[in-house]
Computed example of a mutant assay.
Amino acid sequence: MSDREKLEARLVWERPEPASRPAPEPLSREQIVRAAIALADADGLAAVSLRKVGASLDAGPMRLYGYLSSKEELLELMVDAVYGEMASEGPLTGDWRRALSAMAQRTRRAAKRHAWFIDLLGGRPHLGPHVLAHVEATFAALSGAPGFEHIDSVMLAVGTVDAYVLGALRNEASKLERGMNQAEWEAVSGPYIQRMISTGRFPMLAQVVRDATHPSADVVFERGLDCVLDGIAARLGR
């Protein structure tokens, strides 16, 4: 077997599942993935291991290796399952701006349902069938629209919105990971911030504390997304 054939044999997307066995319990990749997602939703990605997933299904970890070869494959399957949830919301419709906005909001809703999801995005591209269908649908929603006649323009716009969404969601997640809500964090850090402002060395920070409206995370995300889309629209107009 060549190196390329060995690589292709490792791709879980095209590797068949083992034959169904009636005992001790029927098992499938879908069951394994759903069990892993339930663990991650409850206790984070640290709670996901083949041993723990197997235990939740009354199956030993060695039996799971018949369906996937590593935890990394399991994580890829989990990501793809979430993209499947996003696709179930229906096709992207409307003009390019509405389509990109819908894509961004779907990703944010998915990250709210599955707090771990954002940690698995970025880096090496995901290649699962639901991911590829999502990319295909997003590109198709822009393709041929005025200003998007060339595929490079489509990719630039989609990639720019993706980068914004990833950064915004990671920022939101980092605030939640402190173990306290925004009001609790402000109560703890507020006196220190006020002492630093009183030194006179941070006039802009003082203006933020005194004058900024500090809208909700939903509003911040929408406004930031509008800024990104306005930038794309301005580029199209040039």
Rank of each mutant, 00 (worst) to 15 (best):
F221V: 07
S20I: 05
V154H: 05
G128T: 04
M78P: 03
V33F: 06
R113M: 03
T160W: 08
V135G: 04
D230P: 11
H150V: 11
F139D: 12
E30T: 09
P18Q: 07
E14A: 08
V165T: 08
V208I: 13
R4E: 15
P125A: 07
W96A: 11
D58T: 07
L7R: 14
G179A: 09
A81Y: 12
A206D: 15
G200D: 04
L156Q: 11
R170K: 15
A168F: 11
L132G: 01
R109D: 12
Q194W: 00
D95S: 10
R34P: 00
L236F: 06
M103W: 04
A19M: 09
L68A: 02
W13S: 07
R98K: 10
A217Q: 09
V154Y: 05
R210L: 07
R195N: 04
A212P: 00
V131A: 06
L176Q: 15
R235P: 00
D119L: 02
G128A: 06
L57C: 06
V165H: 02
G167W: 06
N171G: 13
Q194N: 04
E30R: 10
S153L: 11
W13A: 05
Q182F: 06
A46K: 11
R29F: 07
M103D: 02
V209P: 00
K52T: 12
D43H: 10
S56T: 13
A42G: 05
K175W: 14
L92G: 02
R34T: 03
G237M: 10
L45D: 08
A173K: 14
S153M: 13
A102K: 04
